[in-house]
Simulated scan of single mutants.
Amino acid sequence: MSEEAHPTAPALRREPAIRRIRRADLVDAFAAGLRDFQAHPAFGLFFGGVYALGGVAILACAFLWDLVYLVYPLASGFVLIGPFVAVGLYEVSRMREQGQAPTLSAVFGAIWAQGGRELSWMAFVTIFLFIIWMYQVRLLIALFFGLHGMPAGTFPGVLFTTPEGLGFLAVGHAVGAVLALVTFSITVVSFPLLLDREVDFVTAMITSVRAVASNPAAMLGWALCVVLLLFVAALPAFLGLIVVLPVLGHTTWHLYRRVVG
């Protein structure tokens, strides 16, 4: 029969290839990220400032509503949305990589162009994970302290000097570590990948998980560095995030370029 009678099926889109990386790649990516921040500090300080102000607003609401016992889990969970806030930083690094001079209109234009596309779905996934994070905290509080929670005034003493408080800390950190690892695995590569290529957000998440699974030592080492740097940066009322977030954001872009072929 003729070729027209049996049209060729569209070729399946190949999944992005994953490269193996080593500790030296992490060091090189961090150095490249630091250079990007030094070359265009205004962008980094802007996105870092927005992120820091968001953290301050969340904590202010917790104190205002007398929910002091949620300050630590809120601050910890707030880290989960960092990759979404850093999208503008990925664009700055991408433009520098292509030899272009980043401008305010170009960076925000690239972010605006993602509205309603796959990157928006990935942002929804991140926010959903933050909601799950807070729900599991409330569930653990109910399991260990009852449905009424704990009075704000007795919170420090109850948390560190009672069996219920110590159990809450142990289980809460264990569950939080698992959820944080899941979030890191599906976002570390997916956000820069969606900005860089035409792929769906499910493929981006799968690619991100594959990148972590193929480079467990290097990627988990990077995850530990991110956690430590963000923790230290958050201590002075989140103000350290103004500098730490842009460096981590730029570094994540260069790490993505080394991991995804």
Rank of each mutant, 00 (worst) to 15 (best):
G49Q: 01
L59D: 09
A213Y: 11
A101R: 14
L119V: 14
G116E: 06
R210N: 04
V202Q: 02
L169I: 15
H254K: 06
L147R: 12
I18D: 04
L181Y: 15
I127A: 14
V247I: 15
L229I: 12
Y51P: 00
I186H: 07
T8M: 13
R94Y: 06
I18P: 01
L12V: 14
F124V: 15
L241K: 01
E164K: 11
A57L: 15
D25E: 12
L74A: 13
L235H: 12
F84K: 07
D66T: 09
L255C: 03
L80W: 08
L64C: 09
G261I: 07
D66I: 08
D28P: 03
L255R: 00
E15S: 09
F124N: 11
V125E: 06
V87E: 13
F43L: 00
L235A: 14
A113C: 01
W121M: 11
G149R: 04
V50W: 03
G48I: 01
I81C: 13
A180V: 09
G109N: 02
F201Y: 12
T103N: 05
F145M: 05
R117C: 04
F191C: 10
M150D: 00
A180W: 07
G54N: 07
I132S: 08
I18V: 10
R96V: 01
F184Y: 13
V227W: 13
D36P: 05
E3L: 12
L12C: 02
M95Y: 02
V92R: 03
F191M: 13
L239W: 11
P7F: 05
P83D: 06
A237H: 14
D196A: 15
E4S: 13
M95E: 13
E91S: 04
R96C: 15
L34A: 15
L80E: 02
D25K: 10
A86H: 07
A233C: 11
G54V: 08
S208I: 06
V178L: 11
R257H: 04
R13I: 11
T8A: 14
A32V: 01
E164F: 08
R22L: 11
A5Q: 07
V182W: 14
I141H: 09
M134F: 14
V227N: 08
H173M: 14
H6I: 13
G33N: 04
A32F: 06
L229P: 07
I81S: 11
A17Y: 06
F108T: 00
G116Q: 04
I81A: 04
G165N: 10
